[in-house]
Design a protein around this nucleic acid. Structure first.
Length: 698
DNA sequence: TATCCTCGAGTTCA
DNA sequence: CTCGAGGATA
């Protein structure tokens, strides 16, 4: 074929497109500064594809269109690493790091490699929670990619790795003859969430965490599937490296460019910088630090930012920065002596699911709870975790006997993330929702369209009676100090307390008969009950434990009706006139007071001397927050959350639990979490405690 | 009817 | 804190 003008321009256009696309990938994944929209990027790809279709002879293996070229395979070949992929020793405690630093410092001093100040210089970086891989570039082209495997031999995953847009198919600039890049493949948490949503919609496998999702995606036999997975790659090291005779090196050695042979071989950090110049995405958030204090400072720093990073890390890694020093330090067994991984306390651990028991809540809700083999995760030992409901167990497919992943994420509450299917024993047993209440043996029923199964025993069920009393005594209800869980259990079990009203007839002498009750505690409790006999009306209504009537609705009812009797006398129609009360809530209230024994309890409370305080219908004071909704988050320096809530309500404002565009202000204290992020996104005004005080006219 | 906003309920460990 | 679900609103 002769090279006519037309052919030339097509070839040139194809070349130009490839270089543009590769530039955009580089800007997006390496520089983190995309300059074009996804749509524009797609347009370039489409144009390149159509040109290549029309001119198949112009297709080269490193064309971005060829990222997904390979057919599904039946298995992976093994690959022997030219240079072994090492593992790192681990440090869990500060002492481990100090010992590491001392060993390094002593060895280097012996070799006469000490710095002026005697401190060892380290390159500190993040330890990704992903999968280690090795990429082999020959003459600047990606020729092979392999998993770590046992460190000597891994699996050939070249066609899967080629689909990762963050992995350049050709190196940029002055590339070496041979370069084995070592790094980690991982998935960002947000991408992982999105992937799982898609998987769920399609009825495909749900992944338990980003790491498993990344692993599963890399081990796909069909690269077309891998191509759809949002995987990323970050380089942190290298294996075999042959610099000589690099053809690119002679071409463009610009005057201002540092001599690669110089910078290149001095330090680990310079090596990583150099890898970045070759177009490889290099581990972000690196730092060069000195001495053990520098290491620990880095650890603290990154540990604090852990939640804010887009991906999971399980620690940080320290490497002696000088490559010469690294050579002097050498290796022990399969780990280098010049590097160590400093692990964070695990946020995720695996343990055995010993059993699934059910709990009965105040409303009869049957909640399955996982009994776990105790496991230390996120700084505490976890033995129980809620499984929420039957559907949740099915969705996660956890079975009794499974090895499960347990997480203690941003908040405090442990969560069973999911089972490790590969470790499922033969005799693993699925959870079966019991037909009868374990406490009172009443039937358990689950209404259609509802996620929760409930015990139908009502107050016949001792568990529900206990929970009802506990609820009434809680801080947001009657706030009865000294009436703890154990005592409530005893009072209910002995039948001394059958309803809320019975509490108020308790006497010091009889309380002494219960376990762990001294005279002092008994007197304190009776005094607390005395104080509780003059509750705000809203608190009393809340304490009754009417279904669908929480703190807010109870307060609304109190304001609307002014007395318990008025609420009790109201029919559904009257109840519907209360704000935020619809048919379900109105029906629930009417049904509650329709029950003779509930009316009896109200009367018995009256006889026992419980008199709600008169409701003050707004004190006429300043109402600076009239009609405004505020959200509280984090810990404030002086006020508790309850305190702040009280003052906001007094100023005519409302306090809500979640941020939306209707939120007027977010009051953020120390350690504010996701609400702050959301408020920032929505452009909600953010205040601190002082700002709130100002707003209240304090 | 669909969507957004709130509220209610349940939960763990030290 | 999160989920489910009730209520209001467009």
């Amino acid at each position: 074929m002769t090279a006519t003008d037309g052919e030339m321009s097509v070839a040139q256009r194809v070349e130009a497109l490839r270089s543009q696309i590769s530039d955009h990938n580089h800007r997006y994944y390496v520089l983190d500064q995309p300059t074009v929209s996804d749509a524009e990027y797609d347009r370039l790809m489409v144009e390149l594809q159509s040109l290549e279709e029309a001119h198949p002879d112009l297709i080269t293996p490193d064309s971005p269109t060829q990222r997904v070229g390979a057919q599904p395979v039946s298995g992976f070949d093994s690959v022997r690493h030219a240079v072994a992929m090492l593992s790192l020793s681990n440090a869990f405690e500060t002492e481990d790091v100090e010992a590491f630093n001392k060993r390094v410092a002593d060895t280097l001093r012996g070799a006469g490699l000490t710095n002026n100040d005697g401190l060892v210089e380290y390159e500190a970086e993040l330890k990704f929670d992903g999968l280690a891989v090795s990429l082999r570039y020959e003459q600047g082209k990606l020729v092979q990619a392999a998993t770590r495997g046992d460190g000597q031999t891994g699996e050939d995953i070249t066609s899967n790795i080629r689909t990762l847009r963050s992995v350049p198919l050709s190196l940029r600039g002055e590339y070496p003859v041979v370069l084995e890049v070592r790094g980690e493949v991982l998935m960002n948490r947000a991408d992982f969430e999105r992937l799982n949503e898609t998987q769920q919609r399609r009825g495909d496998k749900i992944f338990v965490n980003p790491r498993n999702a990344a692993a599963g995606s890399l081990r796909q036999l069909d690269p077309r599937i891998t191509a759809q997975r949002p995987l990323r790659f970050y380089a942190y090291g290298w294996g075999e490296l042959v610099l000589d005779d690099a053809p690119g090196a002679q071409q463009t050695l610009a005057d201002e460019a540092p001599d690669p042979a110089q910078t290149l071989r001095n330090t680990h950090s310079a090596m990583l910088d150099w890898l970045a110049t070759l177009g490889l995405p290099v581990s972000p958030s690196r730092e060069v630090v000195r001495g053990v204090d520098g290491l620990l400072q880095f650890y603290e720093d990154r540990g604090g930012q852990r939640q804010k990073l887009p991906f999971d890390i399980d620690g940080v890694v320290y490497k002696v920065n000088s490559l010469e020093a690294q050579r002097v330090l050498g290796f022990v067994a399969r780990a280098p002596r010049f590097a160590i991984a400093h692990k964070f306390p695990a946020q995720e651990e695996t343990t055995t699911l010993l059993d699934i028991e059910v709990q009965v809540g105040r409303t009869g809700a049957i909640t399955p709870v996982a009994r776990l083999k105790p496991v230390f995760v996120g700084g505490v030992t976890v033995t129980n975790a809620t499984l929420h409901n039957e559907d949740e167990i099915l969705r996660k497919d956890v079975r009794i006997g499974d090895t499960v992943i347990v997480r203690r994420a941003g908040d405090v509450i442990p969560e069973v993330v999911g089972p490790v299917i590969e470790l499922r024993p033969e005799n693993a047993r699925p959870f079966v929702m019991p037909q009868h209440c374990p406490v009172c043996d009443s039937a358990i029923e689950r209404l259609e369209d509802e996620a929760i199964a409930r015990c139908t025993g009502g107050l016949f069920c001792a568990a529900q009676r206990k929970q009802t009393i506990r609820h009434a005594a809680s801080r947001k209800a009657l706030d009865i100090e000294g009436l703890g869980e154990k005592l409530v259990d005893q009072l209910v079990e002995s039948d001394r307390v059958k309803s809320l009203a019975d509490l108020f007839t308790l006497k010091v002498e009889e309380l002494l008969l219960y376990d762990r009750m001294g005279r002092k505690s008994a007197e304190n409790l009776v005094a607390a009950l005395e104080r509780a006999s003059e509750p705000e009306l809203g608190r009393l209504l809340y304490a009754l434990g009417i279904r669908h009537v929480g703190e807010t609705t109870a307060r609304d009812l109190a304001l609307h009706f002014g007395s318990v009797d008025a609420v009790m006398a109201a029919d559904e129609e009257a109840l519907l006139r209360v704000r935020d009360v619809g048919p379900v809530v109105a029906g629930s209230i009417a049904r509650f007071f329709g029950e003779p024994h509930n009316r009896e309890v109200v009367h018995a409370l009256e006889s026992a001397g419980v008199r709600p305080r008169a409701v003050e219908v707004s004190d006429g004071g300043a109402q600076p927050l009239e009609g405004k909704t505020l959200v509280l988050t984090g810990t404030m320096p002086n006020w508790t959350r309850d305190e702040a809530t009280r003052r906001i309500l007094a100023a005519g404002g409302k306090v809500s639990g979640s941020v939306s565009k209707k939120t007027a202000y977010l009051v953020a204290g120390e350690d504010a979490g996701s609400k702050l992020t959301k408020a920032t996104e929505l452009g909600v005004i953010i205040l601190d405690e002082d700002g709130l005080k100002e707003l209240l006219g304090d």
